[in-house]
């Protein structure tokens, strides 16, 4: 055994340890005769993530693995990249063995065989479920804030506009059969109460949004 070979072995062992120890799920698929490919290697992280054992995964088609839950757009993107022997990156929903759905980012890359052909594919799958949930929570919060802005514009200004108009009338020493000064004062008082209630409701809603965001 030459020194160079030992160095090569050392390098290979290091590279292998990356695949074995990473928290990203790794699959290696090999092209078969039917222009499809089958999984020939799966790392521990993928087994843990998916809930399937090694025997259940080896031999499967990787596309078949993602097909049941992935959107047709993402699946088409993956098939297209495989046809063209190009790398691609997709975000898909997938199922664990126990049926739980979760979101993963999958990057797929062809591996050159050194003589211009591609026989193997590497699939690296990262769990993005938490990120996805955070994003959904943020979108939900944005929606609530927009609702609050809408209430401010439409609902808060309604009694306020009434008060402004009524005060205008009073200050112009208006007196007509439509509205007596006493009626105007009563209307100002009830509008002020209405405004007070609306503001309390907005504060309540805002507190609810804040509580949700701290969960």
């Amino acid at each position: 055994m030459t020194i160079t070979t030992r160095e090569d072995e050392e390098r290979l062992r290091l590279l292998e340890s990356v695949i074995l120890n990473t928290t990203d799920g790794v699959l290696i698929a090999e092209n078969d005769h039917n222009q499809d490919s089958k999984i020939v290697f799966v790392n521990e992280a993928f087994i843990k993530m998916s809930g399937y054992n090694k025997e259940e995964i080896i031999g499967l088609s990787p596309i078949g693995f993602f097909a049941p839950d992935a959107s047709s757009d993402e699946l088409a993107k993956l098939k297209d990249a495989i046809d063209k022997c190009e790398p691609c990156n997709i975000v898909v929903k997938t199922s664990k063995k126990n049926g739980t759905k979760y979101w993963v980012n999958v990057s797929v890359a062809p591996v050159s065989d050194g003589s211009g052909g591609f026989k193997h594919w590497v699939y690296i799958q990262r769990d993005v479920n938490n990120r996805r949930r955070h994003l959904q929570a943020l979108e939900e919060q944005n929606k609530k804030l927009k609702e609050i802005a809408w209430i401010q514009s439409h609902v808060v200004r309604a009694p306020l506009a009434r008060i402004m108009g009524l005060v205008d009338l009073l200050s112009e020493h208006h007196d007509s059969e439509e509205l007596s000064n006493n009626q105007i004062i009563e209307a100002i008082a009830s509008s002020a109460n209405e405004l007070d209630n609306i503001i309390r409701k907005i504060v309540q809603n805002t507190e609810n949004v804040q509580n949700q965001s701290s969960l």
Partner: peptide
Amino acid sequence: DKMITLLHKV
């Protein structure tokens, strides 16, 4: 808003 229609009428 009845009060507004009255106000605007005036």
